[in-house]
Design a protein around this nucleic acid. Sequence first.
DNA 1: TATTGTTATACTCTATAACTATA
DNA 2: TATAGTTATAGAGTATAACAATA
Lengths: 157, 157
Amino acid sequence: MSSSDAAATHPLESDFGWTLGVVAKAYRRIADDAVATLPGGPRGYHILAAVSDGQPPSQLAIARQLGIDKTVLVHLLDDLENAKLVTRRPDPADRRARQIVITGKGRQTLRRAREKLDAAETALTTGLRPAELSAFKTALAQIARRTHTLADGIDDC
Amino acid sequence: MSSSDAAATHPLESDFGWTLGVVAKAYRRIADDAVATLPGGPRGYHILAAVSDGQPPSQLAIARQLGIDKTVLVHLLDDLENAKLVTRRPDPADRRARQIVITGKGRQTLRRAREKLDAAETALTTGLRPAELSAFKTALAQIARRTHTLADGIDDC
DNA sequence: TATTGTTATACTCTATAACTATA
DNA sequence: TATAGTTATAGAGTATAACAATA
């Protein structure tokens, strides 16, 4: 009954890629809902998070960090700027480049979005015990770090 | 200083949604490559896996199980049928419906695809110790099961 | 009247190339 | 000559609606 029966009923439930896809899709759905009011949705959130710390980065730096094409980043930043969440300002050291700076309203929006996303994460991972959840997140971050360095070596752009 | 410093360097690396997205994207990239010769790519693989066990399901049953729109499933099955991996046969009990049955060639293709995907999974999770990997996969499957039952309750279609 | 499978259309997203202004 | 940002266009992918055959 145990393994073959379960496989016959739901052969995909033990598939690594399938479960990963299901979880990622489910999280994206509730996360999309959490940041629905934010221009650009999840990507708008990631951009705000990327510009919220350190020196104001250039558009190209953001595009590279987030893996977004620079041509689509233009539209995303247009929307964020129209919503007064970020501003574009010329880089004094390089007049071709622009520095993307987050506004006070942008910081406030980012803070609220983070709260909603924390709630989404909690909703998704309810059922895991604290130790299991902690181990899961650690493993996830570890794999992400590996694939990131791996991707850095592969992509040229 | 340590935590704010790390946050300033890579504020997204500890973000649950971000790391989940990075890992899912990385897996999809290598998995797409693994099943590139398969009509429909990853979805073609999932369809083959779904019809490989039990009674031959109808198209609508496959669409519901896999979360694929029935109109796109038509094209995917067209390609799989042209490649002789599955066949459509009328359901004797309901002449509106068609049973999707996997062919011998389909089973062979599925087996090879599974081997390649296992290799992809191994490549991605190298760096985790066996116990960590096992716990990770268990947690992933548990969340997927939860979200699945949750999705069943939410979606009407 | 509802359901299975199909087709056609419109819409969104992304990728590519080309252009400007600076370096 | 190369780079930062922008714009325009074409392609893939998806969703919607409508249809024929059957229940």
